[in-house]
């Protein structure tokens, strides 16, 4: 099985729209929306949810008011500024949003008045779409640890693909270069970076390809809305060549992309010039990835 991740560095470059097109174009695949912070792929693919799983990760401390002796040891111990006194009473309270679940306060409370509860961080889903199975998630608001959720849903997608004999895992990755992105791309066979011709995107592109180089993953770039600034498009492509990143093509600026989104269709199903461009990008990626040695990572 091959794993293909689509990432962007900077957000809003059109990554999800491109993934939705690939979903329509690819054969036997499983889709995984790893952009769990701002999951959008389901808005285009309208999935029917088959299974819902609770996502629990880490712990959160909770002080039992009746047992608290107000000594302040917990507040002093907490490195995350998560504990403070409440109201005018003689009790401390943990702010669950700031708490990182380290257990220090629980261990060192002289009154043993602090519970350590498992934290529910969100939900993840196995769904069916008109383009095949999809695994996606909803992270609770202000919840942390999206890297672990990404790992969880990638594993679920991997299992479905193996059980159903599907040859491709198509991953919609999150923006940035941090924990969720690393969790989305480690162990993949190929990464496509969707850039746009802006100075911000050029800057972020450089950082994101440093990351894929670090993990030694073959990488390609496609510049979306390239005609908005042909000069920066050339600079992105130059940067790509100098760093051994291949060029998967260009996609032109086309209002049809937004119109397709409003109609909840992928761009290639809606049609237009950008749709033709994306189709070519997909063909190039297929040509590139079928040449790769199949790496079966357990």
């Amino acid at each position: 099985m091959q794993q293909l991740a689509v990432i962007s560095g900077k957000g809003g470059t059109g990554k999800t729209s491109v993934v939705a097109c690939f979903a329509a174009l690819a054969g036997e695949k499983v889709l995984v929306d790893c952009d769990v912070d701002a999951a959008d792929l389901h808005l285009v693919l309208s999935p029917t949810i088959l299974e819902t799983h609770e996502f629990r990760s880490g712990h959160v401390a909770r002080i039992r008011e009746e047992d608290c002796r107000f000594c302040g040891e917990c507040m002093e111990s907490c490195r995350f500024d998560a504990i403070g006194p409440v109201g005018d009473g003689f009790c401390y309270q943990v702010d669950p949003i700031a708490c990182e679940g380290c257990r220090v306060c629980v261990e060192f409370c002289p009154a043993q008045a602090i519970d350590f509860e498992e934290r529910t961080c969100g939900e993840w889903f196995i769904s069916e779409t008109s383009h095949g199975p999809m695994v996606h998630a909803r992270l609770g608001i202000a919840a942390e640890n999206s890297g672990k959720l990404v790992t969880t849903i990638r594993q679920a997608g991997h299992e479905i693909a193996e059980n159903q004999g599907r040859s491709l895992l198509l991953i919609d990755g999150p923006p940035g270069i941090g924990c969720p992105v690393i969790a989305s791309i480690t162990g993949t066979d190929f990464v496509l970076v969707v850039a746009e011709p802006t100075l911000s995107s050029l800057h972020d592109f450089d950082r994101v390809i440093s990351l894929t180089a670090h993990f030694r993953i073959p990488t390609a770039v496609c510049v979306n809305k390239w005609d908005l600034n042909p000069e920066i498009t050339r600079r992105i492509e130059q940067a790509a060549r100098s760093r051994n990143v291949s060029i998967a093509g260009r996609v032109r600026y086309d209002p049809a992309v937004t119109q397709a989104q409003v109609k909840r269709l992928s761009t290639v199903e809606y049609g237009g010039q950008a749709a033709d461009d994306i189709r070519k990008v997909w063909e190039r990626i297929r040509a590139r990835t079928t040449g790769l040695v199949q790496i079966d990572s357990h």
Binding site: G11, A38, I141, E144, N145, S146
Partner: peptide
């Protein structure tokens, strides 16, 4: 702020 709704955004918004 960074995009999203998880820990980095919370750190920025606090």
């Amino acid at each position: 702020c960074p995009p999203g709704t998880s820990c980095p955004v919370i750190a920025a918004l606090r």
